[in-house]
């Protein structure tokens, strides 16, 4: 089973890369861009066949390693 995770910076946390991307997009003529926030995406393939159990494990993985909860939020898709 594959589980997808998205890790993003919490709102209010400075994202200099997102800001640089936003400025570049604006410079390229995409004038509608208001804000860009950059994040991370993980694809985890697990041997666990029980979806609930697998997601519970992944949740623990996010808390312990994949996200730094001081500045990041995660979403298991």
């Amino acid at each position: 089973m594959k589980i997808k995770i998205i890790v993003t910076l919490k709102s209010g946390v400075l994202d200099p890369q997102g800001k640089a991307i936003q400025q570049t997009l604006t410079g390229m003529g995409f004038n509608d861009v208001k804000e860009v926030r950059q994040g991370k995406y993980f694809d985890i393939e697990t041997n666990e066949s029980d979806e609930a159990k697998a997601k519970k494990n992944v949740d623990e993985m996010c808390k312990k390693l994949l996200a730094n909860l001081v500045i990041e939020d995660y979403k298991i898709l």
């Binding site: 200099p16 890369q17 001081v70 500045i71």
Partner: peptide, 17 residues
């Protein structure tokens, strides 16, 4: 040390990249 939780907070990318 911040990642182990021995120290609080986090070190982010420098402001001007």
């Amino acid at each position: 040390l911040t990642e182990t939780g021995l120290l609080p907070g986090v070190l982010q990318q420098n402001k001007y990249l």
